[in-house]
Design a protein around this nucleic acid. Structure first.
Length: 264
DNA sequence: ATGCCTGCTTGCAGCAGA
């Protein structure tokens, strides 16, 4: 396939861009996504490594935050990124950096870091519920637009029992609670397509393995990083996958990158 | 039920993550 026959979009929860920069640059160089969405920068706005990202061939927009959260969109060959918003609408009091949205070429890209929500019940789970409600409201608006839309990032939702190594241990976890799964399923029912499941309906696919108990080598993982596509994009879906080997690198994030390829 | 590990903080132990 010629380099320009398809468009590759990736998502990667880096778990701290300060510590992860060498791994991030190595992965960008190896896999060369046209667009990369990052989550959990864990860095204030001014600490984003803009020069190193530019040297790697990428333009970037980002919304940082001290210590926690933080999201970014990167575009290869210094392609133009037209920022639409950097907060999820619906709550002026919400100061977490968890959503950024931009046009890149013909596409509208929403990059999200949905709240974890543990412990549930509790205030953190309430925040997750209210964030998801705002997300539904906003994505309903996006569905009305007749343009290609990609929503990607760390959803912190395990969609089904197939997506967790031992579902019985996760019944009360905020990532697997019925309220969280219901939001994911309602998005599917509204017309969004889960890209990985569309191409691999029955496979066990994980995108996260925790740092404890040697989870990666035991393949005790979760599928929580997702691509949701509207119908215009789904018609262009060629391939999808997880860069699983990156999770095995030295100084890796606890997440692996996930990607799709679209026909142009 | 908890800690297991890792990154971040103006830190030097505690929090959050999932």
């Amino acid at each position: 396939m010629s380099p320009n026959a398809s468009l590759k979009i990736a998502t990667y929860n880096v778990n701290g861009i300060g510590s992860r920069l060498p791994v991030l640059l190595r992965w960008l160089e190896e896999t060369k996504p046209d667009i990369a969405c990052l989550q959990e920068l864990k860095a204030p706005q001014e600490n984003f490594p803009e020069a190193a990202i530019k040297d790697a061939g990428y333009n970037a927009i980002w919304h940082g935050q001290k210590s926690w959260n933080g999201v970014a969109i990167l575009a290869r060959d210094h392609a133009e990124i037209k920022e639409v918003r950097r907060v999820l609408p619906g709550d002026d009091e919400d100061l977490h950096s968890r959503y950024i949205e931009a046009h890149v070429g013909d596409l509208l890209i929403g990059c999200l870091y949905l709240p974890n929500g543990n412990p549930a019940p509790g205030p953190k789970f309430d925040y997750k519920l209210s964030w998801m409600k705002r997300f539904i409201t906003h994505t309903d608006e996006l569905l009305k637009q007749n343009i290609p839309v990609v929503l990607t990032g760390d959803f912190n939702i395990i969609p089904t029992e197939v997506d967790v190594y031992k579902p019985e241990r996760w019944t009360n976890d905020a990532l697997f609670r019925p309220e969280s799964r219901e939001v994911f399923h309602s998005l599917i029912n509204k017309g969004w397509t889960d890209a990985l499941r569309k191409l691999y309906p029955d496979e066990i696919i994980y995108t996260y393995w925790d740092y404890f108990r040697d989870a990666y080598s035991r393949n005790a993982g979760l599928r929580i990083d997702h691509f949701l596509l509207n119908n215009v994009v789904t018609d262009k879906l060629l391939k999808a996958g997880v860069d699983r080997h990156v999770r095995g690198w030295e100084k890796s994030s606890d997440h692996a990158p996930v990607w799709i390829e679209l026909s142009k």
